[in-house]
């Protein structure tokens, strides 16, 4: 049974690793950005398979909830909010030489991380108590909520910081938009005021005309 489980584990790991590599490549290289975002989500949920193999249920659940759910939604929203790039210069390398340099750097990084993965004493580097904690939800909850509650409160504060930051960004954006009512839809369009020689801003009008006319 032990031998079968060991072999099964190896096969399982190689299968998940292969799927993750293919999905990660698709997420990077797919032409349609929305498809790339979906491939990223699938890749994140397959990474949870690694954590299940390592018997870490909380990290696996966190991976699926936060990465597959949250970060994928964040990426899709970013796609919605940004204007579509017409001709991106990122798609192609400027020259053959730059392409070769890029491939060489990628190969060096892959080789170095492979050497590190083989040489580093992973098995000895883990604290045994943490291995037990990470495998058991009850132990982990005791460690995180009862013994180290400050970590949870810090996470809550970081979350609140992100919310306040998002609101601050929106307020800055709004102030910018209100300040820039010039040109065709601004006061220059008013016929009763005679035109002077002051230069009109080049930036496009930020507000709908019907609100100005009201």
């Amino acid at each position: 049974m032990q031998g079968f489980e060991g072999a099964f584990e190896q096969v399982e790991f190689l299968l998940i690793a292969g799927i993750v590599l293919v999905l990660a490549y698709l997420a990077l290289e797919h032409k349609e950005i929305v498809y790339a975002a979906f491939f990223f989500g699938f890749m994140a949920s397959f990474v949870a398979g690694f954590f299940l193999l390592l018997e870490a249920p909380f990290i696996a659940g966190m991976q699926i909830a936060v990465y597959t759910g949250g970060i994928s939604a964040l990426i899709i929203f970013a796609v919605l909010l940004l204007p579509r790039a017409q001709d991106s210069s990122l798609e192609t390398f400027a020259s053959k030489r730059k392409r070769r340099i890029g491939l060489m750097v990628a190969a060096i990084v892959a080789a170095l991380s492979g050497i590190l993965a083989l040489l580093f004493p992973w098995a000895e580097s883990f604290d045994e108590t943490f291995v037990i904690i990470s495998n058991d939800l009850n132990e982990l909850a005791l460690w995180l909520w009862a013994n180290n509650g400050i970590y949870v409160q810090m996470i809550a504060l970081i979350m609140v910081t992100s919310l306040v930051g998002a609101i601050a960004l929106l307020k800055m954006d709004k102030a910018e938009q209100i300040g820039s009512i010039r040109g065709d839809f601004g006061i220059e369009a008013e016929p009763t005021i005679e035109e002077d020689e002051s230069p009109v801003d080049e930036e496009p009008p930020a507000e709908e005309p019907e609100e100005v006319d009201a």
């Binding site: 909380f58 659940g61 966190m62 909830a65 936060v66 759910g69 949250g70 970060i71 939604a73 964040l74 929203f77 919605l80 909010l81 939800l137 982990l140 909850a141 995180l144 909520w145 949870v152 996470i155 809550a156 979350m159 992100s162 919310l163 998002a166 609101i167 960004l169 929106l170």
Partner: peptide, 20 residues
Amino acid sequence: YFVYTVLFVVVDVMGAFLWL
């Protein structure tokens, strides 16, 4: 609309810790 997705992520993380 960006705020709604940040709200979603916050509730998501909160839910993960409450699940634990």
